[in-house]
Write a protein that binds this DNA or RNA. Structure first.
Lengths: 226, 226
DNA sequence: GAGTGGTCTAGACCACTCA
DNA sequence: GAGTGGTCTAGACCACTCC
């Protein structure tokens, strides 16, 4: 009896020792199942996990090949701003700048694939009194109806949504940009300063939940390790 | 007949509509299998994927609950520059700007925890003839001795290291910055333009391998999804 | 057309954890 | 002890893709 974990480890070993060389096609599932004395489904599970990790590439009919350039994956945590700030030992404060229900602009339609009225929130997160993150958020009332009855005066949309709006898929993007006039004013920066912009769109079962743009002043660093 | 994808989507819908509320325990696999008219293994696969995505939490005997704090981690792939450029259908070119063996400056010592002579490479990656990424790299000859005999005239250190220098740990950081005078010149930008800077330090068994600083002109976006 | 991976089923046993 | 998820099997059919 061989567990799919044991089979996966043995396969990793063969790849590491180049017994299965980069670019080479490895035996078909059925043959491996015979070799390991297991069911094909078990071999299949091991191979699917390796494929997801980028160690092998699979195609029907063509078979399974050892990846030439193993794709490394990194993970990073998505912290609550508050936790991020408090972890640095700084004092966290939150301020709601505006709250409106309004039609989504083109940018939001493009990202979420939906038009109509959204709840639009703008707020500022401060660390020790200094602007740390400007949050510009659009919430889809069809997915999160209760958001319409929440004032967000005391709790940030960030924290509220974590508690009230699960999602199944999220798209992230990160870029550098020059601060717009309004962003510069809100963050207390000279116009055109280099800011770090993170954007996140979340969906639940295909329906858009929220789109948020987070703007950080210079000095902010997103870190991760592997 | 219900596919595990269809079942997963239906489950996401129930969570979205709060038919299954955050924190609530959902029916056991066997019961769901009866309801969907499928095998328990199929329901199990749908639930495992939801659990991996952080949408639900599962414990033996206790059952499956809708997660209160969905998703705390995102993953992103670390592509080779060349693949990144070619994936966009652009023409990739590489140019070595300089290659020297020299003492590590303070910044490198701080990041890698090691002083002494390093191989210092500066190069440029172009997409359709336009600067796409400026790479400033320091390689530890103690960890990668064969790097000293490689000219890097034809192959970028990026690709060469993937093939020749395994690593066991990596630290990443991402930030926005204003381009320095030399960076602006190399990338063909006005001085002070907002650039996206990625930094990566890699280690093998505790010994530093390489430190690289990658600078991208405005317009570059790091994407990931979950 | 044929080979290979993708998925589903029905049943079984195991492992963990709660009461 | 008992309930629930975790995994495995043996067999089947399907879907994609190469030839």
């Amino acid at each position: 009896m061989a567990s799919f974990r044991a089979i996966k480890e043995e396969m990793e070993r063969r790849i590491a020792t180049r017994q299965w060389a980069p670019g080479a096609t490895i035996p078909a599932e059925e043959e491996l199942a015979r070799e390991f004395g297991s069911a094909r489904a078990t071999v299949n599970r091991a191979l699917q996990e390796l494929a997801r990790a980028g160690v092998v590439e699979r195609k029907r009919k063509a078979g399974t090949r050892v990846a030439l350039h193993p794709v490394r994956e990194a993970r990073f945590v998505i912290p609550l701003v508050r936790q991020e700030i408090e972890a640095e030992g700084a004092d966290y404060r939150y301020a709601l700048l505006s709250r409106r229900v309004e039609p989504a602009p083109e940018l939001v339609r493009a990202r979420l694939g939906l038009s109509g009225e959204f709840l639009h929130l703008r707020c500022l997160h401060l660390a020790d009194g200094a602007p740390y993150q400007f949050e510009d958020r659009w919430i889809n009332p069809a997915s999160v109806p209760t958001a319409l009855t929440e004032s967000f005066a005391e709790i940030s949309p960030n924290e509220w949504l974590v508690q009230n709006a699960p999602f199944s898929r999220a798209d992230f993007s990160f870029r550098a940009a020059r601060a717009s006039a309004s962003e510069a004013e809100i963050l207390g920066l000279p116009a055109g300063e280099a800011v770090f912009v993170a954007e996140r769109a979340t969906f639940i079962g295909g329906a858009p939940v929220t789109l948020v743009r987070l703007v950080h002043p210079p000095g902010y660093v997103l870190r991760t390790s592997l």
